[in-house]
Design a protein around this nucleic acid. Sequence first.
DNA 1: TTTATTTTTTAGACAAACCTAAATTTATCC
DNA 2: GGATAAATTTAGGTTTGTCTAAAAAATAAA
Lengths: 220, 220
Amino acid sequence: MINYSTSEENYIKAIYHLQPDGIVTTNELAGELKTRAASVTGMMKKLRSKKLVHYESYKGFRLTPDGRRLALMIVRRHRLWEYFLAEKLKFSWDEVHVVAEEMEHVSSKKLIDKLDEFLGFPRTDPHGDPIPDANGKIEVSRNICLTELPPNKTAIVAYVSDQSIGMLELLGHKKISIGTPIEVKKKFSYDQSMEIRIRQQAATTISGELAKNIFVRYDD
Amino acid sequence: MINYSTSEENYIKAIYHLQPDGIVTTNELAGELKTRAASVTGMMKKLRSKKLVHYESYKGFRLTPDGRRLALMIVRRHRLWEYFLAEKLKFSWDEVHVVAEEMEHVSSKKLIDKLDEFLGFPRTDPHGDPIPDANGKIEVSRNICLTELPPNKTAIVAYVSDQSIGMLELLGHKKISIGTPIEVKKKFSYDQSMEIRIRQQAATTISGELAKNIFVRYDD
DNA sequence: TTTATTTTTTAGACAAACCTAAATTTATCC
DNA sequence: GGATAAATTTAGGTTTGTCTAAAAAATAAA
Ligand SMILES: [Mn+2]
Ligand SMILES: [Mn+2]
Ligand SMILES: [Mn+2]
Ligand SMILES: [Mn+2]
């Protein structure tokens, strides 16, 4: 197994997050990584020479099979550490990301596979994102958006797409987290807001903005 | 808390290991870090400007109180991760060091303090080295060398000073590890070799070379 | 289909950490 | 004490990853 630098890994992971299988442009990636377009161009030449991305000048880039494999390994490390931090060290789910961002670059394969085993082979991280297995296989989540959940049917919160601090804070206040049973009572077409019920508690209202970012598991 | 680079941290830790409180020379440090004298000089200027070492040209260097504090934090991280790897992930004690060498640079203070708590505040790492507490306090081990243990008195292996792979392999073969009860049956002055007894097993012979590196806890 | 705007690449610098080789300082030996 | 030897520092390069500003290419507008 070749070892890659922290920078190389961060670029590969960012490409994966933007487009696991499609074309990413220079500015998109620069925005994602908070770096400048010129730096991206330089790095793409390097990653191309290492056969991790397909890249032709002015035409964007795409992960190669090797690049995708590597991306999945980094995502695996990231999400396993997030799970460890939340589950074993009792970090709150909005704190785990920053720390995992550093830990994901510790490269020992054995470490990660043993950690996976120690954690009991968790399938999702604290944000509900699926964790790739030791072979890089990742579950395709077929969760539906809360906005598409039929009224008066109970579903389980499985995933939140926006994982910013502000969002996680709001969810915390509303007592919504991964695994929370949730039910839509009423939808208001005027502003897409909706009245929901969490467990047996009194109904509460959430904005359309928020609802759009909540995904639930609902086996109809 | 200021953050230091992986290189800076490795230099500080190496100085600490050579001389926690005394003067270290350029070549000594270069040898320890497998780098060149010129690189050491450059880094010392930088660490001096950050007030982590006292340094005057041609006169060697010494950790400042800040430098020592930092060194102890890095040692703390290193040993807690070693403990985690051995205890929770079932790594063998000769595998933990390389991995911890990378993990020790993840800098979150909260991570380390929560890890410490999760592990139950262990006092020593898998090699018997003491783990500094959250304030940087470290136990002074008053272990004695196996060569000084009076014959026919049972003591507990507490620490091995040479932690090279070869040494750990030999100890593994002899079934000696931290916590093993050990007893000296006979010493041969000719080559400093000795006959020892481990638990209730048959006596076995070890070289003076090996005995010099084994330290035991013995409350007389 | 020219012209203007946006996107991307190139050119040139810079900081961190490393290296080799040469110069300088300190230590050792007769 | 002066000549050698050893240790250390300086000088000058290299690599990685970043930046700004200018040039070039691709898109969009007129
Ligand atoms: Mn990262
Ligand atoms: Mn996550
Ligand atoms: Mn290290
Ligand atoms: Mn150790």
